[in-house]
């Protein structure tokens, strides 16, 4: 049975900073807390997933251009937003924003990009938990 640590302390600035960094740059929250190997593995995996998704022809969903996909685009956009600055930089730089529906792997690419964001949310929560000492 795994031990569950419950912290009664209010999360301080450290926790929010670690979480924010982990969201903005995948892996950075763990680097900031002196856990470079963990940061490298988490950040590297998220980054790899993002690059593979892009190479497979996937595209990012914006939070504004929802005319074709409808409400689901907001959900997809939220998933994509998880990759932090990568997502924002891609939108600004017009990288992975075009739908390549004629490519057989474009749907896979979309999922890779979304899951990269969702996994980075997990990584962000992990960094936050470490900072507030709920985890080691």
């Amino acid at each position: 049975m795994e031990e569950i640590r419950v912290s009664t302390e209010k999360p301080g600035l450290e926790g929010w900073l670690a979480g924010g960094l982990a969201w903005a740059i995948p892996g950075a929250g763990h680097f900031y807390q002196g856990q470079p190997v963990r940061g490298l593995l988490l950040g590297g995996s998220v980054l790899a997933m993002y690059v593979i998704g892009w190479l497979l022809g996937g595209h990012l969903y914006g939070l504004h251009n929802v005319a074709e996909t409808g409400f689901l685009a907001y959900v997809f956009g939220f998933c994509d937003l998880g990759t932090g600055l990568l997502y924002l930089a891609s939108l600004l730089g017009n990288i992975a924003v075009t739908d390549n529906a004629r490519l057989a792997t474009s749907e896979y690419g979309d999922r890779f990009l979304m899951v990269a964001g969702l996994l980075n949310y997990l990584s962000m929560l992990d960094a936050f938990d470490i900072a507030v000492r709920r985890k080691k």
Binding site: R38, L41, S45, I52, L56, L122, D126, K136
Partner: peptide, 25 residues
């Protein structure tokens, strides 16, 4: 074949992150 490789790659990357986040030892 390519689809299988993509699935294996996806599973491997997700497993790395779940492994790190889900357990401590």
């Amino acid at each position: 074949m390519r689809h299988l490789l993509i699935m294996i790659l996806f599973a491997a990357l997700v497993a790395i992150i779940f492994g790190i986040v889900g357990r401590e030892k």
